[in-house]
């Protein structure tokens, strides 16, 4: 296991997948803030994909990395083609060439075969029992970050004060060992600047008491932010107290700090069109493949608490997940970013 887990506290996030509508506002909030520079056109540090699906990058769950029996497992560094995207469009022709009424907006040059959320809403299952859900993904800022251990130059590190995984770009020589080692395939190689890049959890915002852009901009109010060990914060409640928020692929061995409230999904529909009450349309073994063996008990807890409120009772868990007041999601990181004098324009 990595020796890099030296952080004294850990900032974490919880995404409630029951509320995600796949609108990509988080993706765009991140994109406009952080990845508008040269070589970043194909980079989406936050992506939302339809599950079941092949994901971004394509088939990332087969690319290795992370740890197996506490040993680093070899992995593939995802390429531009694996992610797709970053296409060039015929903007000049459509918007400025006077052909806007005849020519559609289209990709110029090599035609794409994959891109972010390419298999949107395909999901799995057969009518009338087809199913899918959405999953936002970003760097997991792992407790045992394989990327940090893999870098031969010590260019990557985990911040002591909040556990955010960062890289010193002055030390990065573009070897891409971090991208090989990351089992979540959330490291992007910048082919222009020749160095790797990844989500920085909006640390300059967090330092000013502002939640990361993906969380703050989410219209579904499904992204919780806070310290994992803050007993009154939503993260601690959802992850540790109620144990309904789970890491993605815990078997990868890096201990991610992005957690997910698993999707309950609808019930199955019988052949006669009636609803099979109490059934689960999203197969439990599929969810166990994503979130590990604890997902069943998490779903049971969620259903029990929902039943309690349906019966007129009170549920602290449901109140937390419903989010009556938006700033309850951010455990103190709820300052208005417009109230801050940011230094310069990074773009």
């Amino acid at each position: 296991m990595s020796e890099a887990s030296t952080a004294t506290r850990q900032i974490a996030m919880v995404f409630d997948l029951n509320k995600c509508i796949g609108c990509q506002t988080c993706s765009v909030a991140c994109k406009t803030l952080w990845t508008r520079n040269d070589g970043q056109d194909y980079q989406w540090w936050c992506t939302v994909n339809t599950l079941p699906g092949r994901g971004s990058p394509k088939d990332w769950e087969t690319m290795g990395g992370g740890y197996e029996d506490r040993e680093p497992k070899p992995g593939k560094a995802p390429t531009h083609s694996d992610f797709g995207g970053g296409w060039k469009f015929n903007y000049d022709e459509v918007f400025y060439g006077g052909k806007g009424r005849e020519v559609p907006l289209r990709v110029v040059g090599e035609q794409p075969t994959w891109g972010p959320n390419w298999d949107e809403d395909q999901g799995a299952g057969e009518y009338p029992n087809a199913y899918y859900f959405y999953m936002p993904r970003l760097c997991n800022h792992c407790t045992h970050p394989a990327c940090v251990e893999a870098c031969p130059r010590g260019a990557m590190y985990k911040r002591k004060e909040d556990g955010i995984v960062l890289r010193d770009e002055a030390s990065c020589r573009g070897y891409r060992f971090c991208a090989e080692a990351c089992p979540y395939k959330k490291v992007y190689f910048n082919y222009v600047t020749k160095m790797s890049q990844h989500c920085i959890m909006c640390f300059p915002r967090l330092e000013q008491g502002v939640a990361p852009a993906c969380a703050r901009q989410c219209p579904g109010r499904l992204v919780f932010v806070g310290y994992l060990d803050a007993p009154d914060g939503p993260i601690h409640k959802l992850v540790n107290q109620w144990q309904v928020a789970l890491p993605l692929h815990p078997e990868y061995g890096t201990e991610p700090n992005i957690f997910y409230v698993p999707p309950i999904g609808p019930a199955l529909i019988n052949q006669d069109g009636s609803i099979a009450e109490g059934s689960d349309r999203i197969p439990l073994d599929y969810l166990e493949g994503l979130f590990g063996p604890r997902v069943g008990s998490a779903l049971t807890t969620l259903k029990d608490e929902m039943a309690k409120t349906r019966g007129g009772g009170k549920s602290e868990l449901m109140d937390t997940l419903i989010v009556y007041h938006w700033n309850q999601m951010f455990a103190g990181f709820d300052r208005d970013p417009a109230s801050i004098q940011w230094i310069g324009d990074i773009n």
């Binding site: 040993e71 680093p72 497992k73 992995g75 394989a146 893999a150 060992f177 090989e180």
Partner: peptide
């Protein structure tokens, strides 16, 4: 002589 386990394992 490689500097870490990740790189050594990746060469196997």
């Amino acid at each position: 002589a490689q500097p870490n386990r990740h790189i050594r394992n990746s060469l196997a």
